[in-house]
Structures are given as structure tokens and as C-alpha cells.
Design a protein around this nucleic acid. Structure first.
Lengths: 334, 334
DNA sequence: TTTTAGCACTCTTCCTTTTTGATTGCTAAA
DNA sequence: TTTAGCAATCAAAAAGGAAGAGTGCTAAAA
């Protein structure tokens, strides 16, 4: 689709731009990259690459800058595989070996490691609770009027919540609750906890409404509640030259401060292992100046959350994707 | 210590500067504030106020700007009491009425409300666990090799943690654990959970080391672990004119991104109800351009966490302090 | 003695103009 | 098809100048 030399020139321009953040001139390419042709030839090719939409010019007499289409081609066709050093591999290994008791913690360690190695802002979120099946539900009485409900899912994720009552709860009632919920819910998807169970309890058990109602409400809340966002290295963004512009900096802070947008981002589209959204490929207007790269934290093919990077369009895609692939492989058990 | 007229002029200058973020001229004060004297007189007083260190001049022919000493005097002596509107009171009331099951949630609601009403970035942290007494400890078996320990403190704060084992745990063992911990620990401060208990268990119970060791380790971790920071409205800072300077903006992001600094801030010095740290009154160099105002979330005089605001030195101290006082009063039960 | 009008002086800010230098696109020769 | 050469373009930096806000000082007024 693109002749070999054009590819090489495009790759050189994008590599150079990723490094310098300055529009790239034909002269710079001629000098730095041995392509066996003069700057005039490169210039001619650049005109073509601009006509076909891979490059852009900030103004008439400036060098070229990759367009979104250019980046897309770069990511799809020109990316460097395994752009990761031995040192980085060792660092990631040591970080991921940390012993954790909760999966969420491992996701967070992976997220912060990703940010440290790539120097971009990273973000993660746990899996949607309602896609998981219930393994076990346990109720614990705390004091006399407070109940803790602990839900264990088949993916090994534990969710707990506290329910307060206006009247005393007896240990007897707690045992009954434990019995009902475990018999009725084992193996069911979490979102089935709602209606059918409520009906069952009311018909079969004739259970006190004052006790069941708050429990159902709170369980419903916990199950449907979005899991917490974890953000790491927001300050790293400010090292980048694009953040010299106050406008861009402000947009970025607004973006990561309005959690919903980031959440949506992490919750959409997982056709591939690694998902790359470049600039205005994102539906959200706020994201037009940024690129997002995400992948799923999987263990034995179970979804344990999503991890992503938010950075400028001029991102080191090769590095980020290589690091992500490595982390993803490690998380999934080698 | 300062004559009446000087006070009035200082107050006028600071009020004006807080509003406009521009150096304040003698003429502006004469026009806007009815002080019954000419701009020349005000000018003369300003010279004195500068000599005694309350004011500063960015350059020879500019208006005056408050110094740290000026702000300090303003906060100590000139602050407006109850600088809070009826509308704001109503808004805060409605927010704080939200029914919550966990105290942490209430702290967070208070924190975000504070940010919304004042338009500054707010931050909060839970109480130090090891200052609290244990009310109850409960162990719950999840599956066969996972134990959840739930600790209820006398302040009503619930902490839970998961412990994983390499061997199966029986319900029998769990009951024994519940019995031991509750008899031995009730009413004790959380940090006594460590050594004495371990000894007791080993001597009295002859309990399997494989079970007790991980439990003790994990409990120790949970108790000594700092509670999570909650940050709200970081983007609000970018509306302020001082954040036009990239330097300041970057410092701010670095600050709130390195959690330790914020944590230290919230964990120090509670001589007064409301604590104000202006600019370089903060020990940390990073904070020299910012002011911090903090207060304790108390309920029935029990410490439930700390809530604070981080903003520019040119902060609306009257408003922030009034709003904080009101929120603090409401949290403490009217 | 205190206050105030008047005014020269100081600096920043904003605007315009000039200079510089990088880079292109085109032309014509290789 | 490639390349050397060169005029044309335009942003960015530097330089210059005008405007205006504000001060500090002096001398008169209260």
C-alpha cells in the first residue's frame, strides 16, 4: 500500500518526531538516517506522504509532523517489536513478584510499574462485578447493629460492604442469612442477586423486612458500583514538551479529574490484546490531543481489570506496547 | 500592634488582592473602599506597612502585594467571621445528610463538598489506626484457603484484610481464632495486637505456626498502613490565575501526586480547630507557594480523619475557614 | 503635625518593526 | 528519476517605541 522507501521515510519522521517533539525536516532525515538519497528526494516523498494524509505541516515553511493517519499506520505496520531492555524486564519481574493477598493490589503494582518504565501516566480499574459469578457470600455481625457482607466471586475477587441497622441483629439471624444466601446464590452471576432472590426470601422465609431490605439495597449498590480508579504518575505528563501549553495541561488535568471519562475509556472495546486509540479516534472530544493504550489484566483468561496509559499523541508507541505486552504476559502467569 | 487605619488599609489591600490577583494600588483602595482619606495618605501608610513587612512590591512602580506576614496577620486578626451564604449552608446540609454506612464515606462527602463550595482542591485522610481501641475482631473463611479478618474499632471504623494460606483452613480453626482474638484483644489499642498476643497464642494455645504467622503479619500491615488519601477538585486549581505559570502548575501536580507530602501535611499539628499554614510556614520547600488549611473530622470528640484544602497563598481565607468551621460543626453532630 | 494635590520618574506591558534562520517547493541539470 | 541550487515563505526572536499605571517626593493646605 505504501512503497518501501515511503515507509522508511515515514518511519524515520515519526521516530524523529517522537524523540524531539519538533517538526521534522528533510535535511534532518537525510543526515540522521542513512536512506541513500538526498534531501530533495526525501522532500518529494514528503509531498506525496502529505497528499495521501500521513503527514501534516504546521505552516508552509516548517518541517512535517505525523497526522493521526500517520500514527495509525505506524502503530499497525511500523512498530518495533520487543522494544524493551533487559534492565526493564528485570525491573518489571521484580515488581510483579511482590506477594499480594488481593488481586486489586497486583493490578495496582502492575499499573505503577507501567508508569515507571514508560514515563507516562497510567491508570487502572477493576473488573465489572456483575460479569462475575458468586462463589460464596458471608455475613458477619459487627457489634449489634452492623453487618458486614463479604462476597467472593469465582475470579477470586472479594467485595465487602457494611450495612447498618436501626435494631439489633442476633447471631441466629446471621446464620440464617448465611444459609439462605449461600444455598440460593452459589455459582450465579452477581447481577442475579437482585430481584429473584428477594422474591424467594420473601415467599419462602417470611423474613423480617427491616433486615432484608437494607441488605438487598446495599448488595445491589456494591455489585453495580464501578470499581475504583487507580491513577499513577500524573506528574510525569508535565515533563513533556506538549504540556508547555497551558491549554493542553489544563485539558489533561480535567480529563483525569473527571473519573467518568477515564472509566468509559477503560471499559470499552477489547477486540485485541492491546488497544490503541490515537487522538480523535477517541469518541470523546476532550481526548483529541491524547492517545490511550489499554490492555486487560487477565489471569488464566479471567478478566481481572483493565490497565491503560494516557499520553500525548506523540507517544513512544513501540516502547509502551512492548512493555504492556510483557507485563500482560507476566500477569497471565508467564 | 497596628493602628486602626493601617489595619483597615491592610485588610482592604488583601481583600482586593484575593479578588483580583493583581498588585493593589493606592488609587484602587481610595476608590473602592471608603476610608476617608486620599490616595496620598494611603500611599504613605503603604510605605510603613512595607517597612514593617506586611506588604511587598513586585517592582518599583507597581502596586502592593501581601507578604506571608501580611497574610498571617490577616488570618489571625482580620478574618471575616461566618463568611458563608445561606445557599451554601443549605447545600452543605443537604450533602452531609446523605446516609452512609461507613465513616470514611462521610469524610469523603465532606471533602468533596468542601471543594465544591470553596472552589479549591481538597484532600482527606482517615485516622491513624493504631491510636484506636479494638472493639471486636472477626475471622471469616472464604473458600478453603482464604481468610478475611475484620477489625471493628471503638470509633466505629472497620478495617478488613485478606490472608491467603498454602494449606486448607477448617471452620473449627476459624472459630478458635475468633475466640482467642476477641477474648484477648477487646478494648486494647490496635498496636498492642502485635507482640504480646503472639506470645500468648504460642504459649497457651500451641497453635499451628503456619496459620498464625501470616495472620499476625497481615494484621500488623493493616494496622500500621496509612489510610488512603482522598483528593477532590485538582482541576479547580487550574482556573486560578497563579496557575498560568507553568512552574506553579507543575509544582502543584508534583505535590498532590507525591502522596507522602500531602499525608505528612494532614498528619501534623492540631493545636487549634482550624490550622492554617501560609506559604513557607510549611516546612516543605515544595509548599512555599501554597497555603494549606486543615481540620479534624470529629464525631463526639473522636478523631475520624483529617480534611484539608490546598490552594495558592492568595486564598480566600475568610470563606475557607468559615466553610470549614461550619462543616466541622455539622460533622460533630450539630 | 497631618493630609493632600501635583508632578517627575520608573517600570511593565503591549504593539510594531526588523532581523534571522530554517525549510520548503520549484526549476533545470545530471 | 534524482539532485543541486535558489528564491520564497513564515515563525520566532530581537529591538525599538509608545502608553499607562503607580510610586515617591515636595510643597502647600488643613
Amino acid at each position: 500500500m505504501l512503497e518501501e522507501r515511503k515507509k522508511k521515510i515515514l518511519q524515520a519522521i515519526i521516530d524523529e518526531y517522537i524523540n524531539t517533539a519538533e517538526p521534522v525536516s528533510s535535511g534532518a532525515i537525510e543526515k540522521k538516517y542513512r536512506l541513500g538519497c538526498s534531501s530533495a528526494t526525501i522532500r518529494n516523498e514528503m509531498v506525496e506522504l502529505e497528499k495521501t494524509g500521513y503527514l501534516e505541516k504546521p505552516h508552509t515553511s516548517s518541517g512535517r509532523v505525523p497526522s493521526a493517519k500517520g500514527y495509525r499506520f505506524y502503530v499497525d505496520e511500523l512498530i518495533k517489536e520487543d522494544d524493551i531492555s533487559l534492565q526493564e524486564i528485570k525491573y518489571i519481574q521484580s515488581k510483579l513478584e511482590t506477594k499480594v493477598n488481593e488481586i486489586e493490589e497486583l493490578t495496582q503494582i502492575a499499573t505503577s510499574t507501567l508508569s515507571e518504565v514508560t514515563h507516562y501516566t497510567s491508570v487502572s480499574i477493576g473488573p465489572r462485578a456483575n460479569f462475575q459469578n458468586i462463589e460464596e457470600v458471608k455475613f458477619v455481625l459487627l457489634g449489634t447493629r452492623m453487618l458486614m457482607a463479604v462476597i467472593l466471586t469465582d475470579t477470586g475477587i472479594v467485595k465487602e460492604t457494611i450495612i447498618k441497622f436501626d435494631e439489633d441483629i442476633t447471631e441466629q439471624q446471621v446464620s440464617t442469612l448465611n444459609f439462605i444466601f449461600n444455598n440460593k446464590l452459589k455459582g450465579k452471576p452477581l447481577d442475579e442477586i437482585d430481584k429473584p432472590l428477594e422474591e424467594y426470601i420473601f415467599s419462602e422465609m417470611n423474613y423480617s423486612l427491616n433486615v432484608i431490605k437494607p441488605i438487598m439495597q446495599q448488595l445491589d449498590r456494591v455489585i453495580n458500583e464501578e470499581s475504583k480508579l487507580y491513577l499513577e504518575g500524573a506528574n510525569k505528563a508535565f515533563e513533556l514538551p506538549e504540556f508547555k501549553s497551558l491549554e493542553v495541561a489544563r485539558n489533561f488535568i480535567n480529563l483525569i479529574d473527571t473519573k467518568e471519562v477515564v472509566r468509559d475509556l477503560l471499559n470499552t472495546g477489547f477486540a485485541k490484546d492491546i488497544n490503541v486509540y490515537i487522538g480523535d479516534e477517541n469518541e470523546n472530544e476532550q481526548l483529541k490531543d491524547f492517545s490511550i493504550i489499554t490492555f486487560k489484566h487477565r489471569y488464566q483468561d479471567k478478566d481481572l481489570g483493565t490497565i491503560g496509559i494516557i499520553g500525548p499523541k506523540r507517544m513512544d508507541y513501540s516502547k509502551v506496547i512492548s512493555v504492556m505486552k510483557y507485563i500482560s504476559k507476566k500477569l497471565n502467569g508467564q
